[in-house]
Nucleic acid binder design. Structure first.
Length: 496
RNA sequence: GGUCUCUUGGCCGAGCGGCUAGGCACCGGUCUGCAAAACCGUCCACUCCGGUUCGAAUCCGGAAGAGACCUCCA
C-alpha cells in the first residue's frame, strides 16, 4: 500500500529527553503542529529558526513518503501583556496606538510574515488556522476542562486549577519542573488576585471596558487565555493524539506545559508523541528577542538596512546559515558567519552546475555510496543538517577534483551525486539556486551583460587591455562581477 | 534566588570514550595579460583543576565564565 522509503529516523523528544525512533501513531499519516507567530510586528531572524527547522521536518517526512498534515497557527488574539495596562492584549494595544482596527494590523503583519517565509522558501503548512477564527472551539475546550472540575470561575474569568490537576497528573512533565518549586519562585504580579494560586493560568479572560478585542462566552465578554488556541486548534485538525508538536525552547514553559495540562484535563490523554524544540538565535551571545529590542527583521537582512549589517543578505544565505547549525543548538549571528555561509552555499551551487558536464571514467577513485549514506544517516539522526552539509562539501571537493582531471568518477557515481544533491540540497534542505530563477528582467540583464562580455572578449583577443579593463571596471561599478576562466567569462551580481 | 543548558582553532559550527568533521578567514599553489573569481593544499582546537580508563574534547567531581526559563516571547 504505502510507498514509504525505509528509514531509521530518530527524533530527540523533549518529553523523554532522549532520541527516539520515529514511528507515527497511524502510519503513513503524520500530524504535526508548530507554534506560529504573534502577528503584531515584523518577523525577525528568530522567527526564521522554527519556520526553517520544522520546514526541514515537514520536507523530510514527505520525502520519506509520509502523508503529513502540518498545522502552523497565526496568533492574532490573546497574549496578555504584563505591564501597567495588564488585561489588554498586544494586538489591541498596538491598534489603539496607531488608530487602526486590530484585525487590520493582524492582517498586515500576517501578509508580511508569509511573504518573508516564501522568500526563505519555507513551504506553506497544510493548514494555517487563526486563533480569532477558533474562539468557539476554545470556549468548548475550556468548558470541558471546567466540567472535569479542573477550572474555576472568578470574576468573569476562567482559570485552570494547576494544584488540583497536579494531584493526579504531573504539571512539569515537559519542562522538568517541580510544582512546589514553581510556586515558591513565581513572582507575584499585580491584578492577579482573582486567581487562587499564582501558577494558575487563564483559560478565558474577562475583557476590561477599554479592551476592544472581545467575544461572548458563558463566563463574560472577553478573550481566550494564552494557551488555549494551540490546544483547541491542534485537537480540531490533528485529533486528541498526534505525532509532532514543535516550537521554540522558550515556549516549553509555561506554554507547552500548559497545553499538555489542558489536553489531559479536557480529553483525558497527553496530546503529543514527540515534542520538538528549536534553540534560540543569539546576537552577541544574547537571545534575539522582541522584548530585548536586539532583533533584526528578516526584511532588514534582505535589504541590508540595519546599522549592524555590513551588507544585504539573500534569503537563501539566511536559510543556509541556519542549516549549518543543528536546530537544538544556539546559533550566533554575525556578519562574518553570514558571509561565510553565503560563500559556502555558492560553492555547493557551483558544483551542481558543474555536474551535468562532468566527464566520467571507467573506474572510480571514491566511495560515493558511502558518502551519500553518510549524508542520509546525518539527517536521520535528529535532522543533523550541519553534518549532511559537510558531506555535500566533501562531494563538492570530489567533483572539483574530477573536473580538474585529478580524480576518476564513473558515470554511475556522477548520476548518484546528481540525485544526492537534488534530493538533499534542494528537496530536503529546501535551498534554491537564486541565480537560475527565471525572472524576465534578470534574463534581459543576462543577455545584455553577455553581449558586453563578448565585446570585451573581442578586445582581449586584440590585446586591447585598456578597453577590456574599462568594460570590466564599469560593469563592476554597476554591481556586476566579471569572472574570467579558461572556458570564458561569466558574471554574477555583486551589489552593495 | 530556583531549575536547566552551554564553554571546541581568528570567526561560525559538528562530534559526545580510540578514527581528518565541515564552512569562512589566513597562508601556499594552480589558472591568468593583470586583477578578481574559481579550484587544490597546509596551518590553527577542544575554559581551568582533579579523577576514572590502556586511551577523554567526549565519562565523573570541583572551579570560573556565559546563556535560557521562572512574565508576552521563535
Amino acid at each position: 500500500m504505502s510507498d514509504l522509503k525505509s528509514n531509521q529516523l530518530h527524533i530527540y523528544n523533549s518529553l523523554s529527553r532522549k532520541k527516539e525512533k520515529f514511528e507515527p501513531i497511524k502510519s503513513p499519516f503524520v500530524g504535526m503542529y508548530v507554534c506560529g507567530p504573534t502577528v503584531y510586528g515584523d518577523a525577525h531572524l528568530g522567527h526564521a529558526r522554527p519556520a526553517i527547522a520544522f520546514d526541514i521536518v515537514f520536507r523530510y517526512l514527505k520525502y520519506l513518503g509520509y502523508k503529513v498534515r502540518y498545522v502552523r497557527n497565526i496568533t492574532d488574539v490573546g497574549h496578555l501583556e504584563n505591564d501597567a495596562d495588564y488585561g489588554e492584549d498586544k494586538i489591541a494595544k498596538k491598534a489603539k496606538l496607531e488608530q487602526l482596527e486590530p484585525m487590520e494590523i493582524a492582517q498586515y503583519f500576517t501578509d508580511r510574515y508569509l511573504h518573508d517565509m516564501q522568500s526563505l522558501n519555507v513551504l506553506p503548512p497544510s493548514i494555517q488556522p487563526h486563533a480569532s477564527g477558533h474562539i468557539i472551539e476554545q470556549i468548548e475546550m475550556a468548558q470541558k476542562i471546567q466540567e472535569a472540575g479542573l477550572a474555576y470561575e472568578s470574576n468573569g474569568s476562567l482559570y485552570f486549577d494547576v494544584k488540583k490537576y497536579n494531584q493526579n497528573h504531573n504539571y512539569g512533565i515537559l519542562s522538568g519542573r517541580n510544582l512546589d518549586e514553581v510556586i515558591a519562585n513565581t513572582r507575584s504580579l499585580d491584578g492577579q488576585d482573582e486567581k487562587r494560586d499564582q501558577v494558575d493560568f487563564a483559560l478565558w479572560k474577562k475583557a476590561s471596558p477599554e479592551h476592544i478585542m472581545r467575544w461572548k462566552s458563558p463566563w463574560s465578554d472577553g478573550f481566550p487565555g494564552w494557551h488555549m488556541e494551540c490546544s483547541a486548534m491542534s485537537t480540531k485538525y490533528l485529533g486528541e493524539n498526534f505525532d509532532i508538536h514543535g516550537g521554540g525552547m522558550d515556549l516549553k514553559f509555561p506554554h507547552h506545559e500548559s497545553e499538555i495540562a489542558q489536553s489531559v484535563a479536557a480529553n483525558g490523554s497527553s496530546p503529543v508523541k514527540y515534542w520538538m524544540h528549536n534553540n534560540m538565535v543569539t546576537i552577541n551571545g544574547q537571545k534575539m528577542g522582541k522584548s530585548l529590542g536586539n532583533f533584526i527583521t528578516l526584511e532588514q537582512f534582505f535589504t541590508g538596512d540595519h546599522p549592524m549589517l555590513e551588507k544585504k543578505y539573500d534569503p537563501m544565505t539566511i536559510r543556509f546559515f541556519m542549516l549549518q547549525a543543528h536546530y537544538r543548538s544556539t546559533l550566533d549571528f554575525s556578519n562574518e558567519a553570514l558571509q561565510a555561509a553565503e560563500k559556502g552555499l555558492n560553492k555547493l551551487l557551483n558544483t551542481v552546475r558543474l555536474l551535468p558536464s562532468l566527464k566520467s571514467s571507467e573506474t572510480s577513485d571514491a566511495d560515493i555510496k558511502a558518502l551519500i549514506a553518510g549524508g542520509f544517516e546525518a539527517i536521520e539522526d535528529d535532522f543533523n543538517t550541519p553534518v549532511l552539509i559537510a558531506q555535500l562539501f566533501e562531494a563538492t571537493r570530489l567533483v572539483n577534483l574530477a573536473n580538474d582531471g585529478k580524480m576518476a568518477l564513473t558515470a554511475s557515481d556522477i548520476q548518484n551525486l546528481t540525485t544526492f544533491f537534488d534530493d538533499t540540497l534542494f528537496t530536503i534542505l529546501g535551498l534554491t539556486d537564486t541565480f537560475s530563477t527565471s525572472n524576465p528582467l534578470e534574463n534581459v540583464a543576462d543577455g545584455l551583460i553577455k553581449l558586453i562580455l563578448e565585446m570585451r572578449l573581442e578586445a582581449r583577443k586584440n590585446k586591447d587591455w585598456a578597453t577590456s579593463d574599462q568594460l570590466r571596471d564599469q560593469l563592476k561599478a554597476l554591481g556586476i562581477l566579471v569572472k574570467d576562466s579558461k572556458e570564458g567569462s561569466t558574471w554574477e551580481w555583486d551589489l552593495n
